[in-house]
Computed example of a mutant assay.
Amino acid sequence: MNIDKIVKLIRYTAGLPKSIYVNLRLLPLSQAVFLPIIVSRKTKLRSLSGKVQLSTVKTGIVRIGFGGSDMMDYSYERTILKITGKIHFQGKTKIGVGAKIMVSGNLTLGNRFDITGDAMIICAKEIEIGNNTMIAWQSILMDTDQHAIYNAQHTVINQDKKITIGNNVWIGARSLILKGSVIPDGCIVGANTTITKPFSTKKSIIAGNPAKILKENISWNH
């Protein structure tokens, strides 16, 4: 066994008490005994009062607080998990070191979903992400403005809006995906891009601020 595998085993073992707690808190006992959710000991648990649904129950199919890019330092980075709403894991999920997941609405993560590390998802209403989708470091997904804005009639004018991300999507580093955004299947979002609206062209490169389509009929491998 090489040194990387030994380190990984040590980290999984160190996180076992917290993993057991998370599974028992979020899942029925019939599922929790298989430990489908593995959590790093360095994951901060802000709240687990919400619900989790699993399409597949298999040991370690959801891993939180492990891995990530070479820029992430496991010794100093801390993953944060706050679930007061509902998360539906539709398959294999990797949430890397330093990621922040805050869910008070409904979050759906497709099979082979991957956050490389130090990214943030804030879900107050609904965020739906398809299969084989990757989010690079320091990106932010928010379906809410966090604070209400009122008009003269005291009506809220900045309602939360659903974010929809298709299958086989790559979101580049430091991207900002805001409420009402739609990213179709097969797209790449360039680094440091801000998206605030729906796009409809599949297999395209979307980049810039404001975001626009730069190329079409592209493909990439996860």
Rank of each mutant, 00 (worst) to 15 (best):
S69N: 05
K162I: 12
D160A: 06
R41I: 12
V156K: 12
S181A: 15
D160P: 14
G110R: 04
K5G: 09
Y21Q: 02
D4K: 09
N131H: 12
R63C: 07
S139W: 07
K18C: 02
I183F: 06
V156I: 10
I101Q: 05
A207M: 14
A32Y: 11
K42V: 03
D70C: 07
G172Q: 07
G68E: 01
K44R: 15
G91V: 08
D114R: 08
A152E: 11
H154M: 10
I20P: 06
A207G: 06
G166V: 05
L214E: 09
S75P: 02
L176M: 08
A14W: 07
Q53E: 14
I37C: 03
E216C: 00
T59Q: 15
R174A: 07
S49M: 04
R41M: 01
G60Y: 07
L141Y: 04
N111W: 01
Q138T: 08
I163R: 06
K179M: 08
S139E: 12
P198S: 11
K125Y: 14
K86D: 14
T116P: 06
G208Y: 11
T196Q: 03
V22Q: 02
I206A: 09
S139D: 06
G208V: 03
R78H: 14
Y21H: 12
V97L: 08
E126T: 15
Y74A: 00
I61Y: 11
T155W: 11
S47V: 13
T79G: 07
I205V: 08
K161S: 10
T108K: 15
S75N: 13
T194A: 12
H154E: 08
I205Y: 02
E77R: 09
I95E: 05
V39D: 10
I163K: 08
I10A: 10
L35C: 10
I20V: 05
H147R: 13
L107Y: 03
G50V: 07
S181T: 15
V156N: 03
R78K: 13
I101P: 11
S47Q: 07
H147D: 04
I10W: 05
I218L: 12
A99C: 15
K161I: 04
L29F: 14
I129D: 04
N209G: 02
Q146R: 14
R112D: 13
C123Y: 05
V33K: 15
S139C: 00
N158G: 12
V62N: 06
S75K: 04
P17I: 13
S55N: 03
L35W: 05
K162M: 13
I115P: 11
S30F: 12
E216F: 00
I61H: 11
Q138V: 11
A136C: 11
A173Q: 14
Q53V: 15
F113V: 02
P36G: 03
N132S: 13
L54T: 12
M1E: 06
I205G: 13
L107G: 04
I165G: 09
K5Q: 13
I135R: 08
F199R: 04
V33G: 02
K212P: 00
G68Y: 04
G85R: 01
H154D: 02
L54F: 07
V156T: 10
K8C: 05
L141A: 04
Q31S: 13
G110W: 00
I20A: 08
I165V: 06
L141G: 09
N167K: 00
C187G: 05
R46G: 05
N217T: 01
F34G: 06
G98V: 01
G85C: 04
K18F: 02
K44G: 13
I80A: 14
I38H: 06
Q146T: 13
I140P: 10
G50R: 01
P28M: 00
